[in-house]
């Protein structure tokens, strides 16, 4: 007897669960020959709202975790991704990559996770500063996560673009909702399965699939989103995001990079998603020229 192949339903990833889109809409993803690979959820505004809610709920405990623990979890993600490489390679090939390209992309994704895992308990030391001031104050600046980040992932990449977008956000203690590439969405949901089995608390990363022009407004106007992260160079889109984001003065971060390149990972991608808090602590200059002692 021949066996029927069991195909995966590609759903969304919100709050650590895999719901279907609330709207019930989907779009077929075609391969080069024009046959359907999978049906992909077409997320609605309400899905985005649910994702923001989940991200906000997760923010408190994720940002308060010890830096070391965050690093451990990110490293665990790399381990899980490594173990699933064949699946990602198959998906990348199905979306039009060559086997060699696919192999390279998965390698790089794992390495990038390890790279950011390493930064988790180091970036604060490197970025923070003790500042010289003219009064008797101990003045120091430390970096703190922004909050909930709305990520519009690169359209031209299925896996590495997504990894490059998510990792700097969560390494720094933010939570995020991510809209995957419209044309290359397969790896996004499989990546969600990796995240879900890596001790990453539900809600820290929420992944949606769908059409960018449809969800742009919700991402950028939602009052509970603190920053919008956009990878691309479409001038009209950037202008729209900036306009929408003015509602609650969100940070808008725009990147146009080759995400396969070695320099598409750095500390500044992480620090761009941090706010700087400066503290003025009064001190007595004991023994100094202005001291009363």
């Amino acid at each position: 007897m021949t066996r029927l192949e069991i195909l995966k339903t590609y759903k969304l990833y919100i709050g650590g669960q895999f719901p279907r889109t609330e709207s019930g809409r989907y779009y077929p993803l075609m391969d080069k020959k024009g046959s359907t690979i999978a049906n992909i959820c077409l997320s609605s505004r309400k899905d985005a709202r649910n994702a923001v809610q989940a991200a906000r709920k997760a923010f408190g405990s994720w940002s308060e975790r010890t830096a070391f623990n965050r690093g451990q979890i990110l490293y665990r993600m790399a381990e899980m991704l490594e173990g699933r490489r064949e699946q990602f390679i198959t998906e990348l090939v199905a979306q039009g990559n060559s086997k060699t390209q696919a192999n390279k992309e998965v390698d790089l994704s794992v390495d990038r996770m390890v790279y950011y895992a390493g930064w988790c308990d180091k970036y604060v030391q490197v970025l923070s500063s003790v500042n010289p001031v003219a009064s008797s104050h101990f003045n120091f600046s430390v970096h703190e996560p922004m909050g909930v980040i709305g990520v519009l992932a690169p359209q031209d990449s299925s896996l590495i673009g997504l990894v490059s977008a998510i990792l700097p956000a969560i390494a720094g203690g933010n939570t995020c909702l991510v809209l995957a590439s419209e044309k290359l969405p397969l790896c996004a949901i499989t990546l969600a399965e990796v995240l879900n089995s890596s001790d990453l608390p539900g809600g820290v990363v929420n992944i949606l699939t769908g059409i960018q022009t449809e969800l742009l407004e919700t991402f950028a106007t939602h009052m509970d989103v603190n920053a919008v992260w956009y990878a691309g160079k479409d001038k009209e889109t950037i202008k729209l995001i900036r306009e929408y984001a003015s509602s609650n003065v969100k940070r808008v971060l725009v990147y146009d990079k080759n995400w396969m390149a070695a320099d598409a990972q750095d500390l500044y991608l992480l620090s761009d998603l941090q706010e700087v808090k400066t503290t003025w602590h009064p001190i007595e200059n004991i023994g100094g020229a202005t001291s009363s002692y």
Partner: peptide, 9 residues
């Protein structure tokens, strides 16, 4: 307003 709100406000 048509815009999703935040409890912060």
């Amino acid at each position: 307003t048509g815009v999703y709100q935040s409890p912060e406000y």
